[in-house]
Simulated assay, not measured.
Amino acid sequence: MFYCPVCKSQEIFPVVGGYVGQIYLCKDCGYRGSFVLEIDSADAFRELEKDDKEHK
């Protein structure tokens, strides 16, 4: 599962690939870049959200 590093949305999709590498676009916040969060389980995502809230 891929997540946007800015808004943590799953609405992130590859728009460019090939020689330049993968570029992703978030449909929720408009983030465009090569860095995305890849999380294998829903439990890990909940833990990430919990940590994010604690650091704000």
Score class of each variant (00 low, 15 high):
residue 1 M to H: 02
residue 3 Y to S: 02
residue 4 C to G: 04
residue 4 C to I: 05
residue 4 C to S: 06
residue 5 P to N: 05
residue 6 V to A: 05
residue 6 V to Q: 03
residue 7 C to T: 06
residue 7 C to D: 06
residue 7 C to K: 00
residue 7 C to M: 10
residue 8 K to T: 07
residue 8 K to Y: 00
residue 9 S to N: 11
residue 9 S to E: 01
residue 10 Q to L: 03
residue 11 E to R: 03
residue 11 E to A: 14
residue 11 E to L: 05
residue 12 I to S: 06
residue 12 I to P: 09
residue 12 I to G: 08
residue 13 F to E: 09
residue 13 F to L: 06
residue 13 F to W: 08
residue 14 P to M: 11
residue 14 P to A: 15
residue 15 V to I: 14
residue 16 V to N: 07
residue 16 V to C: 08
residue 17 G to A: 05
residue 18 G to H: 08
residue 19 Y to F: 05
residue 19 Y to L: 04
residue 20 V to E: 14
residue 20 V to R: 14
residue 21 G to V: 04
residue 22 Q to Y: 07
residue 23 I to F: 08
residue 23 I to C: 04
residue 23 I to S: 06
residue 24 Y to M: 12
residue 25 L to H: 15
residue 25 L to P: 00
residue 26 C to A: 10
residue 26 C to R: 04
residue 27 K to P: 00
residue 28 D to V: 02
residue 28 D to E: 15
residue 28 D to K: 14
residue 28 D to H: 04
residue 29 C to L: 00
residue 29 C to T: 01
residue 30 G to P: 01
residue 31 Y to T: 14
residue 33 G to N: 13
residue 33 G to H: 13
residue 34 S to M: 15
residue 34 S to Y: 08
residue 35 F to V: 12
residue 38 E to N: 11
residue 39 I to Y: 12
residue 39 I to G: 02
residue 39 I to V: 15
residue 39 I to M: 09
residue 40 D to H: 09
residue 40 D to S: 10
residue 40 D to W: 08
residue 40 D to T: 10
residue 40 D to N: 14
residue 41 S to W: 04
residue 41 S to Y: 05
residue 41 S to Q: 11
residue 42 A to R: 07
residue 42 A to Y: 07
residue 43 D to V: 07
residue 43 D to R: 11
residue 44 A to I: 06
residue 45 F to M: 15
residue 45 F to T: 00
residue 45 F to C: 04
residue 46 R to G: 12
residue 46 R to Y: 05
residue 46 R to T: 10
residue 47 E to P: 01
residue 47 E to F: 06
residue 47 E to S: 13
residue 48 L to Q: 00
residue 49 E to F: 01
residue 49 E to Q: 12
residue 50 K to Y: 03
residue 52 D to C: 02
residue 52 D to I: 10
residue 52 D to Q: 02
residue 52 D to G: 06
residue 52 D to S: 01
residue 52 D to N: 04
residue 53 K to L: 07
residue 54 E to L: 09
residue 56 K to D: 06
